[in-house]
Design a protein around this nucleic acid. Structure first.
Length: 580
RNA sequence: GCCCCCGUAGCUCAGUUGGAUAGAGCACCAGAUUCCUAAUCUGGGGGUCGCAGGUUCGAAUCCUGUCGGGGGUACCA
C-alpha cells in the first residue's frame, strides 16, 4: 500500500522532533482538488501547534527530510497552510491498476474479515400481505451489505425472520375466513382491525372455485428445506368452514400464511434477493426457546414480577423504562420472542448481527441491546441500522400507504413498472438513514435523468467498442504494465486514478454500512469514462501502442463497473437499445 | 415532555468521518456529431451550508442553544 510506505517514511522523518508512532495518527487522504496531488497529509498542521512551530515551515522541513522511493512517490510538495502533498508515480499507478484487475491482487488483500460469520437480517415483513415497496429499500440495502461484507472477507448470511405466530396471523385467518363465508352466502362480521386488502378477496375466490388443486399446487411451492414447516391444512375450504370457529380460523390462517409467504418469496426472488435462512417465529415457541430465554433472564436476575406481568429490568441496561416480557394474561410479548430469536442467533454461531429496522422501531434498540447484554452476549453484538421511510411520488403527488386499508404500492408493482435494476439503484443512491423521495414517473422514464442508465450505457459502450475491435482483427488480450505505459491523455489518467480507488471504496462502504458510496463511485467512473471516450476519439484508428493502451484501460474500466454493479445487484448489459 | 432522522444551488441530493476556492445530476444559457451507440461531451450563470454562539491553526462536518419538517415514545403486533 502506498499509504503504508508514506506513513513509514514520514514517521522516520519525524523522529528528529521526538514524535513517534504512538503520538499521532498520520492521516492520508485524496485531495479534492487534483492539482494538490494524489495523497495529502495534514500532519504539519496538527504538529505545528503541539511543537510551537509554524505549520508551513515545519511542513517544508519534513518534506525535505522525508525519504521515499522515487519509483513510487514522484514528488513531495508543500501547499496551503502546511499540507504536504504527494504525487504517485505513473508507473506505480499502473501497477495499482493491474492489482485491481488481477483476481489475486488488491481485492484479495482487503479480505481481512477472517471469514467471521455475520448475520444480516432484513425485510422480515409480517406475513399478512404482499411485500410493499418499503421492503424493497430494505432488500436492496441488506443484500448489497451482505455482498460488501463478503468482499472484505466476512462470511455474511442473509436472513429473513417470519412472524408467523401470534395475534396478527389469527387476524389474517379470520379476515380470509370472513371473505370466504361472504362468498358462500354465510356472511359473518368482519373482524375488527382485520386485513381488507383485495388480495384476500381473490384468495377467497380461489378457494371457492378450485379448492383442492389450488391448495395442492400452493403446498408444493414449499419443498425446500427452510420452508418445510409451511404446509396447508388438511382438506379444503369447505372442510375448514365447518370446524369450530377457533379451529376454522386457524386453518384459514395457515392457508393464507402459506400463500402469502410464497408470494413474498417469489417477490424477493424477482428482486434478486437470496436469503440463506427464513427463520420462523413459530419454531421459537415450539422448541421452547422463548421459555428458555425467559428462564435465562430470570436466572441472571434481570426480571421481576409486578401486577401479574413479568418485566425486564431494561433500565439497568440503558433503556428509559422497564419492559414487559409476559403479559398479565400469560401471553409472551413480541419483545420476549425477539429476545429468544436473537439469543438463538448468537447461539447459532454468529459473531455479529446486523438488523435493518424501520424508523418506527428505533426506540426498540436500547431494550433489545439491553437484553443481549443481560444474557451475557453483550450489547455491541447487535448492530441496528435504521432505514428511513421512502416517499413515493407519482404525478408530483405523494402516495400514502396503508396496509390495513389495502391501499399500498406492492413491491411487485414497483418491479413491473420501473424494473428491479432501476429501483435497486435509486434506493442505493441515498444513505440508509435519510428519507428518500422516489419519483415513480422519473424512474419509469428511460431517460437520461435516470441515473442507472448512464452507468449501464458506459458498460455497454465498452462492450461495443471491444466487439468492434475484435471485428477489426484486434484482440487486445490482457492489460500489462507495458501496454498501459502508453497512456497519455489527462482524461485517461483521471480515469486510472479513480479506478485504483476501488479497494478503498469497497472497504469504506462496507465498514460504514453505506452502500450508496458504491453508486456514487460507479457514477463517477462512468462519467470519467465518457469524458475519456469523447476526448480520445476514434480509439480504433489510433497508432497500435496507443490503441492497445486505451483498449486495456477500457477493459479495466469494464471490470470495475461489473464488479460494483454485481454488488449492487444491477445487471451490466452488453448492449442497450439505441434511443431515437 | 423525552428520543431519533433531516435542513447544503430553483429541484433531488453528495460532501472521503475536522481540511485547501463547498460539489454532482436535473433545470436554465451557449457550443460540439462526415466519429467505435449523443442515454454523451465542452463551457457558463446560480450558495449567508436554517439561525446564533462555542471548541481550534481550520467547522457544512464536533458541542450547546434555537427555529422549521418528518418519525417515534404500548401489558400493539
Amino acid at each position: 500500500m502506498v499509504e503504508d510506505i508514506l506513513r513509514k517514511g514520514l514517521l522516520a522523518a519525524l523522529e528528529t522532533y521526538g514524535v513517534y508512532e504512538e503520538d499521532l495518527e498520520i492521516l492520508l487522504e485524496k485531495p479534492r482538488d487534483r492539482s494538490h496531488g494524489d495523497l495529502s497529509t495534514n500532519l504539519a498542521l496538527v504538529l505545528g501547534g503541539r511543537l510551537g512551530r509554524k505549520p508551513r515551515e515545519l511542513a517544508g522541513e519534513i518534506a525535505a527530510r522525508v525519504e521515499l522511493p522515487r519509483e513510487i512517490i514522484e514528488s513531495v510538495e508543500i501547499a496551503g497552510p502546511g499540507f504536504i502533498n504527494f504525487r504517485i508515480a505513473r508507473p506505480h499507478q499502473i501497477r495499482l491498476l493491474l492489482d485491481v484487475w488481477r483476481p489475486d491482487g488488491a481485492l484479495r488483500d482487503i479480505r481481512t474479515g477472517g471469514n467471521r460469520r455475520i448475520n444480516v437480517e432484513f425485510i422480515s415483513a409480517n406475513p399478512t400481505g404482499p411485500l410493499n415497496v418499503v421492503s424493497a429499500r430494505a432488500g436492496a440495502f441488506g443484500m448489497t451489505l451482505v455482498r460488501l461484507l463478503d468482499a472484505i472477507g466476512y462470511d455474511a448470511h442473509a436472513e429473513y425472520y417470519v412472524n408467523d405466530a401470534g395475534r396478527q396471523v389469527e387476524l389474517l385467518g379470520a379476515s380470509l375466513r370472513a371473505n370466504y363465508l361472504q362468498l358462500v352466502g354465510e356472511p359473518v362480521a368482519f373482524p375488527e382491525g382485520g386485513y381488507q386488502g383485495r388480495y384476500l378477496e381473490i384468495m377467497a375466490a380461489e378457494l371457492q372455485e378450485r379448492d383442492t388443486t389450488v391448495i395442492k399446487r400452493a403446498t408444493t411451492a414449499f419443498d425446500d428445506e427452510s420452508f418445510q414447516r409451511v404446509r396447508a391444512p388438511e382438506g379444503n375450504a369447505e372442510d375448514w368452514r365447518k370446524l369450530p370457529e377457533q379451529e376454522s380460523i386457524r386453518c384459514f390462517a395457515k392457508y393464507a400464511l402459506m400463500k402469502i409467504l410464497s408470494w413474498q418469496r417469489e417477490t424477493c426472488r424477482r428482486f434478486g434477493l437470496r436469503f440463506e435462512t427464513w427463520y420462523f417465529e413459530s419454531e421459537l415457541h415450539e422448541s421452547k426457546r422463548v421459555e428458555r430465554a425467559l428462564d435465562k433472564l430470570k436466572k441472571m436476575g434481570a426480571t421481576y414480577e409486578q401486577e401479574g406481568a413479568v418485566w425486564f429490568k431494561s433500565t439497568t441496561h440503558g433503556d428509559e423504562k422497564d419492559r414487559v416480557l409476559v403479559r398479565a394474561d400469560g401471553v409472551p410479548t413480541y419483545f420476549l420472542a425477539d429476545i429468544a430469536y436473537h439469543y438463538h442467533k448468537h447461539q447459532r454461531g454468529f459473531e455479529y448481527a446486523i438488523d435493518f429496522w424501520g424508523p418506527d422501531h428505533h426506540g426498540y434498540i436500547p431494550r433489545m441491546q439491553g437484553a443481549m447484554e443481560a444474557l451475557g452476549v453483550g450489547r455491541a453484538w447487535l448492530e441496528v441500522q435504521i432505514l428511513q421511510h421512502v416517499t413515493f411520488l407519482e404525478g408530483g403527488r405523494n402516495i400514502q400507504m396503508s396496509k390495513r386499508r389495502g391501499q399500498f404500492v406492492t413491491m411487485d408493482a414497483l418491479i413491473d413498472e420501473v424494473g428491479a435494476d432501476v429501483a435497486k439503484y435509486i434506493f442505493l443512491t441515498r444513505k440508509p438513514n435519510s428519507h428518500l423521495d422516489f419519483d415513480l414517473d422519473l424512474a419509469k422514464q428511460q431517460s437520461d435523468e435516470n441515473p442507472v442508465m448512464k452507468v449501464k450505457y458506459a458498460h455497454a459502450r465498452i462492450c461495443s467498442l471491444l466487439a468492434k475491435a475484435l471485428d477489426a482483427g484486434i484482440d487486445p488480450g490482457e492489460p500489462t504494465a507495458q501496454s498501459l505505459a502508453h497512456l497519455e491523455h489527462e482524461a485517461e489518467w483521471n480515469l486510472v486514478r479513480e479506478l485504483i480507488r476501488l479497494p478503498q471504496v469497497i472497504v469504506s462502504a462496507a465498514q460504514a454500512r453505506e452502500p450508496h458510496r458504491l453508486t456514487g463511485y460507479v457514477d463517477e467512473i462512468a462519467g470519467l469514462y465518457n469524458q475519456f471516450y469523447n476526448q480520445c476519439k476514434k480509439i480504433l484508428d489510433q497508432a497500435p501502442d496507443r490503441r492497445l493502451a486505451q483498449l486495456h484501460l477500457s477493459l479495466a474500466t469494464r471490470h470495475v463497473l461489473r464488479l460494483v454493479l454485481d454488488m449492487l445487484g444491477v445487471e451490466a448489459p452488453a448492449e442497450m437499445e439505441k434511443r431515437d
